[in-house]
Design a protein around this nucleic acid. Structure first.
Length: 724
DNA sequence: TTAGGGTTAG
């Protein structure tokens, strides 16, 4: 008893805990400058017990205080039947100095008498806070909030007598936010201001993070008006929400407003969030400016910051720049993590560089980073996009073996791969598997399926499928409509394709450069250059920015129609307008000039392209080698062939045929024979006259076995070809 | 209670 009395006197104002709870401005604080408008907290005045009740209360309290190691149920057991909620309330003031005992009494009451009254829960929360049992306080507050309508009123009513600290209001506020009663949290903030209490910014941040942008902005302004000083984290939440809503400029203004705000200086997260916002909008220059600015301020970019920029570069197919950024990150000592690797793997997957994908996976494993479902999905996506379905399935198996479940994104990547290959049955089989696994195919899945059908001429089936799923409530998007437009164009139904673009607008989707380019391509391919031009004009009138693909479609149209002068004029115009032509643009022109046997102009264009810093691709080399071979410029053909091989590119069947014939013409039999062998080993079919040449050569060399083998092969392949 | 990575169209 003596010990308890001593403890009671020491704890009467709870000095240590109180000081700790108030330190560091992490908790609610009383307003001390607005004393005139502050109202006092209510006095605690429970009704008085009768003499009989007071006796019972005294007995219970004494039993509890005399308890040593026995459980409360043992010393209180025989009081259970007559002990009412009022007795509990009356007991608590006698246990004020010993929160542990008071809380034990609450537990005991709950276990044998049922729900603890609101007032007792509030008192329990105050006592828990005072004894620094914050999780205990949180539990009691949550219990109170979920069980009683005016529980907040009980907490306020008991606050003064039970000498809690303003920290209890942080916990109460947080508990209200946790159970998602956000309006009530805001009301509590306002109400507490009238008592001179301001909930901490830390707790208010929990609310901000759950609010929609509108409410977030109004709350931000209102609470500030009421005296809250928002911190960096609060501003970061606001900036993030603005960026998610596409209001990046407004978000940037928030960052500018933080300068000179002592409570909220911009930190790495502030900058990284805004950089991410600009990256999402494709605004690389703005993102890089901020990147520069943050490092000038001494804020070191981290893996998040780098990842946003690398993601944008990968999205734009700028893998060289993405890799440069990655190397810079390593030089600056920022350790790459799983997300960075996944971003890069996905970027290389998109452009079909599987060697890089495998290299990164290995690198990642060496760094002890475990690939997760997203990493595996990116690898599977890369393999499926490159048509390597067997390897994609192997990877899927590895993923499952490592404990990662494929989800709708993984399934969709595979479905798309099968669709692109025309293996529609396999695609639908996976779709069914996906349903069996409990995943709901989304619009991306159905677009992949429809696109597979469209690409292989089954536009009617695609239309039926989409009709069915949209009838079930699935909203089609721009991608879906464009697949259909492409499918209709492919089967020559441009009229209906145009109608689909009208339907698309009626469905509230604004056509962008994609459907226009698809339709322009169809008109170009049907020789209707005027209509293609009209569409370009319509696009420009509507403020729709054509892309390089749009111009390439036009270029290809001019070239295949033999309108080479128009093609060259388009190229000049593009350069003048700073629309950067790419390899495809030049390839179209070179191909047509080459077909017209004008290798002089082809060489001119090639030089122009290289001096403009545009790298030749596999297609370029095939055009150059075929053209030069046919023009009997074998020196040039050999030169480009060497260069092509050194870059890891390969010849196509038509290029092999032209090149081999050219070599034979120049009597370079060894080289020709080597290429013929290589061509056959790659499964290509040679022209009949090439077979004849090598049949003759082998016959003259008395190589009977080879002669017969080639005769056989020529009969089989060339006859099949000609029959087709 | 604040920031990043994976699926569809020309």
């Amino acid at each position: 008893m003596l010990c308890r009395a001593a403890a009671e006197s020491q704890r009467s104002i709870f000095p240590i805990v109180y000081r700790r709870l108030l330190s560091g401005r992490r908790h609610s604080r009383p307003i001390d400058s607005l004393t005139t408008s502050i109202r006092p907290f209510p006095e605690y005045s429970p009704k008085k017990p009768s003499i009989h009740d007071a006796d019972l209360v005294r007995s219970v309290v004494t039993a509890l205080k005399q308890r040593r190691l026995e459980p409360a149920s043992e010393v209180l057991g025989h009081f259970a039947t007559g002990f009412r909620p009022d007795h509990l309330i009356w007991s608590l003031p006698n246990l004020r100095s010993d929160p542990d005992l008071a809380l034990a009494l609450l537990d005991w009451f709950r276990s044998c008498r049922g729900p603890v009254p609101a007032e007792a829960l509030a008192i329990g929360a105050h006592l828990s806070v005072v004894s620094a049992d914050l999780s205990g306080a949180r539990r009691l507050l949550r219990d109170g909030l979920l069980s009683y309508r005016n529980f907040v009123g009980r907490v306020i009513y008991t606050y003064k007598y039970w000498s809690s600290t303003p920290a209890v209001y942080d916990l109460l506020f947080r508990a209200i936010v946790d159970i998602n009663r956000l309006d009530e949290a805001r009301a509590l903030f306002r109400h507490l201001v009238t008592y001179g209490i301001i909930v901490s910014s830390d707790s208010c941040n929990a609310l901000l993070a759950r609010l929609t942008l509108d409410h977030l902005q109004s709350t931000f302004a209102e609470f500030q008006e009421l005296g809250l000083r928002w911190d960096s984290k609060s501003h970061n939440i606001l900036i993030h929400s603005l960026c998610c809503a596409g209001k990046t400029q407004e978000a940037h203004e928030v960052l500018l407003g933080m300068k000179g705000n002592a409570d909220a200086s911009p930190d790495v997260i502030t900058f990284s969030t805004l950089i991410q916002g600009y990256c999402n909008e494709g605004e690389l220059p703005r993102a890089m400016e901020l990147f520069e600015e943050m490092s000038n301020k001494g804020l070191a970019a981290n893996a998040f910051t780098y990842n946003s920029i690398i993601t944008l570069l990968c999205k734009d197919g700028k893998l060289v720049d993405a890799d440069r950024m990655f190397v810079e990150m390593l030089h600056r000592g920022v350790a790459p993590d799983r997300a960075i690797y996944t971003t890069l793997i996905n970027g290389y997957s998109k452009i079909g560089n599987l060697n890089a994908v495998y290299r990164l996976v290995e690198e990642m494993k060496k760094s002890q980073l475990v690939p997760d479902a997203m990493t595996y999905t990116s690898v599977i996506y890369g393999l499926a996009r490159s048509g390597k379905m067997a390897e994609a399935n192997k990877m899927l198996q590895e993923m499952i073996n490592r404990g990662w479940n494929p989800d709708e994104v993984t399934y969709t990547a595979l479905i798309d791969g099968y669709g692109k290959e025309g293996k529609i049955k396999d695609a639908f089989y996976l779709h069914n598997e996906m349903l069996r696994a409990g995943y709901v195919p989304n619009v991306v899945t159905y677009t992949a399926l429809a696109d597979g059908l469209c690409k292989h001429g089954e536009v009617e089936a695609a239309n039926e499928l989409l009709h069915e799923v949209s009838g079930k409530g699935l909203e089609l998007n721009e991608f879906t409509y464009n697949s259909l437009i492409y499918g209709l164009c492919k089967v020559g139904n441009i009229e209906q394709a145009v109608q689909i673009m009208v339907d698309m607008e009626a469905a509230g989707l604004r056509p962008d450069a994609y459907p226009y380019t698809t339709l322009m391509d169809a008109y170009c391919k049907s020789g209707n250059m005027d209509q293609a031009h009209n569409l370009l004009r319509e696009m420009l009138d509507r403020g729709i920015q054509p892309t390089i693909v749009t111009f390439n479609v036009l270029m290809n149209g001019f070239c295949t129609a033999g309108l080479l002068e128009d093609g060259r004029r388009l190229l000049e115009w593009m350069v003048k307008k700073s629309i950067m032509p790419n390899t495809t643009t030049y390839n179209s022109l070179m191909k047509q000039y080459s077909m017209e046997k004008n290798m002089k102009t082809v060489t001119e264009i090639y030089k122009e392209m290289c001096s403009g810093g545009i790298m030749p691709d596999e297609n370029t080399y095939n055009i150059l080698i075929t053209g030069h071979s046919k023009a009997r410029n074998m020196k040039e053909a050999c030169y480009f062939h060497c260069e092509m091989v050194s870059k890891g590119f390969s010849l196509r069947a038509t290029s092999y045929n032209a090149y081999i014939k050219g070599l034979v013409r120049k009597k370079k039999f060894t080289e020709a024979r080597g290429l013929f062998k290589e061509m056959r080993s790659r499964g290509f079919v040679s022209d009949r006259d090439i077979y004849n040449i090598f049949i003759d050569i082998n016959y003259n060399e008395q190589n009977v076995e080879m002669t017969l083998e080639l005769c056989d092969e020529a009969m089989q392949k060339c006859f099949q070809e000609s029959e087709l």
